[in-house]
Write a protein that binds this DNA or RNA. Structure first.
Lengths: 191, 191, 191, 191
DNA sequence: GATGAATGAGTCTTCATTCAT
DNA sequence: GATGAATGAAGACTCATTCAT
């Protein structure tokens, strides 16, 4: 039997890509990636047909990691506010801890080459969060706004908090906390 | 005397650049720009020494247009909330009306080639807004947060509102209004 | 009547060309020449149809200046050795004093664009020297070698002397004198 | 393993460069070289990072070949005159036999892009000749002139002899012989 | 499967020359 | 005639992708 494609090699390419894209943007040459990955230039193309496919795959993988991080320890039974805060905290903390992944993710989100597939696969793991949002709206705890708009708002605020936490690590906690307060104040109904 | 460097031609190159960058990203070839502008490839380089210089110039120009839009009719004597809302509304409306400029601006803001000069020139016209923010914090109308953080939050929320208004124009007004309400609820002190 | 082409302008272009070619080689852009000459880019082309024509013209002009220098005070009636030495000294001194012209001349001599015309015109003023050489060979003062070979040898030695005099000006006189001695020893018949 | 960078291909590029530079000057396009070499345009750049590097490499290689030619059969124990004549003959014969290399070498010697490294590497193989010259001066066989001046004179005369031998091949031997006689007469002390 | 040399289309930029003013 | 902006054909170099080994 022929040698099997090695999961290891695939993974080194993927993490090299994170490294390189974070530092040099998505326009970085594939050769830079293979160098960092310690494989030959051609090897990349046995694991990913094209550079675009690599990026799309990477998008999915990072989204999955992020979803894992966000859902780990999700307090299914807590109040909406607590559940939302859990999600917020996990995202912000992940963004700070995984600076490169976060940077690359943001580049990919404004990249014009993402396939519909990748987008769908990337958002799949967030169904539970969406369910929570739906629930919250239904319970009239949260303003009656389109859910995607709420989600986007949350993302935007969290990314901002992450950026500031990175630049000014001493006040990271403050950005994280007040970001969430702003979010909650913004979307919760006044009691 | 020979043909003078025409302001017109410079402007067609600049608007062609907006067109092309909005559609194909900053990596679009200069030849695509000159084609759209209806000039020869070389002509671009009599107006801008390099592609980077073109992008930096474009950044400044768009920032100035945006500043003009945002400050036009600024109600200097109105309440903080009204002044803030004015700025918000103007920005969101500009972003909707000038879709391409807005897209390009966002690409340029994450571009690594912006010169310090361009950044400085681009933020200069916003001093008045910053003054307002400082004022608002001093008056304890607004939470005591770092001003750049407030500004970034506002940007992030406004960009989100613009995106949604674009995708779903029928509810554009709703996104604009509720976006601002979220912002205000988020940053204003509870009375 | 239309304005006449100005001899002045033509000359500033020609000397600017010397300046620029000496420093940057014959590949220097015509725009560099017009800048130094203080005229518009297009003006060069009303005096010289193409860049090649400019170079060919320059070749002729420098050759003429050189011939003037070499023949000035030529001691028609002196001995062969004295006449030859006069020519040698004048050439070497001209080369040292007109460093740029000399450099440019040497570049043009290995340039592939020189027209036959220019070459002919350039060598015309040297007939008298050639006559002297012919005379010297006939009188059996000088070895029986093809005259162009003698001329080329002299040029080569003189250029070498000029180069060393330029690099090491304190010993300029020594290079000039021993260069000539080498030439004479090389070509004169042993008595 | 993949195709290894082939010494053959490197060499065809290098000899194509000689071909092309000899005919069209150092300004010839790299594409002309790759066409002659029978490889793709990009291939040149896997062997030489830049065009300048190619030229510098070529300089070294030609200088080495020349040194080999000049030193082959060098009669270490013969008289100064014989040793010098050996060097002269070998150089002139090499120049005649390797017309293109000789032409290109002369262009490279007046080229402004040669690195110090290349110059040093190029002159290294000639130490033995320099030692001989030093020896000759010390023994008072040769006039007391700066060695570099003697070397340059020899070069200049040899290049002249080569040029004439090429244009007039029937008398090649005569140019070679009388060139050397002129050199020796020029630099030897009169006994 | 892995390797990395080979490929050639594509990119920015330069520059001799033209031509509207 | 003078000016200098306009032109577009090169030219050096890059890089995703292929393919011989």
């Amino acid at each position: 039997m022929a040698r099997l494609k090695s999961e290891d090699k695939r993974n080194s390419i993927l993490s090299a890509a994170v490294e390189v894209f974070a530092e040099r943007g998505l326009a970085a040459p594939t050769a830079a990636i293979t160098t960092v990955a310690g494989v030959a230039e051609g090897t990349l193309f046995t694991y990913f047909r094209t550079k675009d496919e690599l990026v799309n795959t990477l998008y999915r993988e990072i989204k999955m990691e992020l979803a894992d991080a966000m859902m780990s320890g999700f307090p299914r039974k807590a109040s909406v506010r607590h559940r939302l805060q859990h999600v917020w905290d996990q995202y912000v903390e992940w963004g700070i801890a995984h600076e490169k992944q976060h940077k690359v993710l943001r580049q990919m989100m404004v990249w014009e080459g993402l396939t519909g597939d990748a987008k769908a696969a990337g958002s799949a793991p967030f169904v539970e969060i969406d369910a929570m949002a739906q629930d919250a709206v239904a319970q009239r705890l949260v303003k009656d706004l389109p859910r995607p708009f709420i989600a986007a708002t949350m993302s935007a605020l969290a990314d901002t908090a992450i950026d500031f936490a990175r630049q000014d690590p001493k006040r990271a906690g403050m950005y994280q906390v007040s970001g969430f307060e702003m979010l909650w104040a913004g979307i919760a109904r006044r009691s």
